[in-house]
Design a protein around this nucleic acid. Structure first.
Lengths: 245, 245
DNA sequence: CGCCAACTTGATGGCTGTCAAGTCAGGTGG
DNA sequence: CCACCTGACTTGACAGCCATCAAGTTGGCG
């Protein structure tokens, strides 16, 4: 299966501006806190943008690594595949978040990244980024921080997988999504899940039936209103209480 | 409780050389692949070494972050604590491995690091390291790679926590330890565990009794010989078969 | 309208957690 | 040197949570 890369050339990109300075999520992304001259430098090194249709891969495990990707808008997931076919979703990424960090260490990607809805990502050639971050202190700092935060985020997920029970996991998941939606100016109380129950389950270390049951229980308890993938959080405090006794 | 920092001043450090060039694990650490002039530069920015007695903390969650730590010898663990007291061991670190990466993103540490045996770590002031890695391309690359590999390592642990059963987890754990001991020139087949069953359990998302039972089962099946914390791997292939069917 | 993937719900079983008792090894003090 | 004590570990019995298997429902799309 050929991986049709929808690359937008410079001319078209100007119409749909790739400039960080007008991007709604630049404050969460690499240019956070940089001066305008520095941001311009960062913009210049980005070769292109890339459009992904729902279901399309951004990269796959084993692919050569040469770029990081910043999500401009859309929703992606990353997962790792074991030798025996077991797979584990390692994250769901939304606008302003960086993908591909796993590839830096080995020169090739170690997980798969796939769009869960039509998405739009900025392609950041890594060698150029390395060069620029040697010259721009703030950029270096941002890049390091993003990597470090990814590690901290992973520790949080380990805690979830290692110590929490099913409904605690789902509550933590919903609260995390809610908070990230809010940080992007969207409603923290009402949103659409882009992933299946099975993908949520894989992320949380549960089977899809268990996820479904936990959703139903939250619904019964008036914590949320769930209709398929549409979620409305009715009682944030109550959800938080599911986590800690 | 005062945290007695055993810092070795310059004079004493010379007696117990802190030079990367004579360190047995430099190939696994920050100086990997660097030229001698670059290594010298790296050595100069390291302020001191630090001795830890068994049980002593290197840092705690909440501590201000200002340095990374490279293990020269010894054995540490890191763990995160949830609000409700649950804790999750996030890793066991040995010679040549870097600690403190979690602190870069937030300016303070988000986990605890504690020595499981008397240990010896190099203190690497982070602001100086940042500066040096802007000038030394190879150092920048190594640093980025180490962060990226930490992310990949965490993904592996997520897979373990999310999809494996008790004996699979323990087999993966033992094989991982074995391989890391081997990379350091020690026996891959016979070693001493520095951590308790409870700490292994916390790392693997299991209770200590479950860990103990899995050990006993491996012993019965002639895969390993276990006497308390002394481990001898009798059948590596068999252990590997526990992972994949 | 019919198909299909995604989802829900129920019944059952197994893995692992929990509780409990007993063993072992190392360290301390008499 | 030995007795004792303590923390770490082992082993057993039982229970509970979640996986598994199965059947039915929903909603989207051709």
């Amino acid at each position: 299966m050929t991986q049709a890369r929808v690359v937008i050339p410079m001319a078209a990109a100007r119409q749909q501006p790739r400039h960080c300075s007008v991007c709604t999520v630049s404050g969460l992304c690499l240019p956070a806190g940089l001066g305008s001259a520095e941001i311009e430098r960062l913009e210049r090194l980005m070769s292109a943008r890339r459009r992904l249709r729902r279901g399309q891969h951004l990269y796959r495990a084993g692919d050569a690594f040469d770029s990081l990707f910043a999500i401009r808008n859309g929703f992606l997931k990353t997962d790792v595949l074991g030798e025996d076919g077991r797979d584990q979703v390692t994250g769901f990424q939304m606008a302003g978040e960086l993908l591909g960090l796993d590839g830096i260490g080995q020169g090739h990607h170690t997980c798969n990244a796939r769009a869960l809805e039509d998405s739009d990502v900025c392609v950041i050639p890594y060698d150029k980024l390395e060069g620029a971050s040697r010259e721009i202190e703030g950029l270096q700092r941002n890049l390091m921080k993003l990597l470090s935060r990814e590690i901290v985020r992973d520790h949080g997920l380990m805690m979830l997988l290692g110590t929490m029970r099913a409904d605690e996991r789902l509550a933590a998941f919903l609260l995390n999504l809610s908070q990230r939606f809010m940080a992007r100016g969207w409603s923290p109380a009402e949103f659409h899940l882009r992933m299946t129950r099975e993908e949520i389950g894989s992320y949380l270390g549960l089977k899809l039936e268990t996820v479904s049951r936990a959703f139903s229980r939250f619904h019964e308890d008036q914590l949320i209103c769930v209709q398929q993938r549409h979620i409305r959080i009715l009682d944030t405090v109550g959800l938080r209480k599911v986590l800690g006794p």
